[in-house]
């Protein structure tokens, strides 16, 4: 995807604002979404960069991973692609092996913080610079990520606006150990604090990996049987959009399309459901996984070029896609 842009347009877009340190969310008609920032004179020639990822079975992880591998190659470096396949044991093993393998740098994408952080620390202590994607930690030099504080608040505001500030909300909260999910959830709670008539149904649901879609479908179908009255549930929220996909499909199957679903990532299937006026997908916060992945590698190259004062987080803009602008967002992300 990144290669579809010439380096000239990349540079232009880079200067247009998809860059380091911008915490801004793009407004509805944003420019330059999912366009790759330019590498400029940066180089990773002769460097071996380990690209360690929790899994590549979802749209976000896969795009972020592919962009990292491609960018390392583009800059003349050697990527070591390590996909833990959603197994924490495999993830810890591959990070452990990296301590003895001593690559020039490690980029860790996602993961449960308590599981990976001890090993990120060991890598750091072994003198290996550690960077991350979507994983803020004291042991990484820089994490490339969406601004989950802003997008979490924006998504929550879209939700309460769509339900007029009242009603029961179903929340999937199975990954509170993943920092970015925790931030989005905390933002939802913060917004809801000011809408006392909107309540999260207890107990909250737990989304799972794998079989996320089927599991969310089954859980929502069961919950709809428990709340058969139209209007008894106003919205369904999840910290990413694969549970949202299952939930939306369950609502369509049960004919309960008065309920709206909300999530984060911008997986193409979900974005298409948000665009579909008949589907009950209310909104999705669309991220730019390829740009995030590329940004992480560029930061590694900047570090090797002597920029040691990198910010701890590099924010890549995200867009809230709702019923009104989903088609436009699809075009910007190259999904149309």
């Amino acid at each position: 995807m990144a290669d579809a842009f010439s380096s000239l347009s990349r540079r232009g877009l880079f200067h247009a604002g998809v860059a380091l340190g911008t915490a801004a969310l793009l407004p509805g008609a944003a420019q330059a979404a999912e366009a790759a920032p330019a590498a400029g004179t940066l180089s990773l020639k002769g460097k071996t960069i380990a690209i360690s990822v929790a899994g590549t079975d979802h749209f976000f992880d896969l795009k972020a991973y592919q962009a990292q591998v491609e960018t390392v190659k583009e800059l003349g470096g050697t990527p070591i692609g390590l996909d833990a396949g959603r197994s924490d044991k495999a993830l810890v093993s591959q990070l452990q092996t990296l301590v003895t393998q001593k690559p020039d740098a490690v980029i860790q994408t996602l993961g449960t913080l308590t599981v990976v952080d001890p090993w990120l620390k060991k890598l750091r202590q072994a003198g290996i610079p550690v960077f991350s994607v979507d994983l803020p930690s004291a042991n990484v030099i820089n994490t490339a990520t969406s601004d989950n504080f802003s997008l979490g608040a924006q998504l929550a505001l879209q939700l309460v606006s769509d339900i007029n500030g009242r009603g029961n909300i179903v929340a999937f909260n199975g990954f509170s150990g993943v920092p970015v999910c925790e931030i989005r959830y905390t933002q939802l709670r913060t917004v809801l604090k000011y809408y006392p008539e909107a309540k999260i149904i207890q107990p909250e649901l737990r989304d799972v990996i794998p079989n996320t879609v089927q599991d969310a479908y089954a859980q929502i179908t069961a919950l709809l049987a428990k709340y058969p009255e139209p209007g008894s549930i106003a919205a369904i929220w999840s910290a990413w959009d694969i549970p949202q996909l299952g939930a939306t499909q369950a609502l369509i199957a049960a004919g309960r399309t008065e309920i709206r679903t909300y999530g984060v990532d911008g997986t193409p299937e979900v974005l298409a459901l948000v665009k579909d006026p008949k589907a009950p997908a209310g909104a999705v916060a669309a991220q730019q996984p390829s740009v995030i992945g590329r940004t992480a590698v560029l930061n590694v190259a900047r570090y090797f070029a002597g920029e040691t004062n990198l910010p701890s987080q590099t924010f890549v803009p995200a867009i809230i896609a709702n019923k009104a602008n989903a088609g436009e967002v699809q075009r910007q992300l190259g999904q149309a």
């Binding site: 050697t78 070591i80 692609g81 996909d83 396949g85 495999a90 093993s93 092996t97 393998q101």
Partner: peptide, 13 residues
């Protein structure tokens, strides 16, 4: 095997 392939830079895929 897992360890050796990682040391040889073979992609997990």
């Amino acid at each position: 095997l897992t360890n050796g392939f990682q040391l040889l830079h073979v992609s997990t895929y």
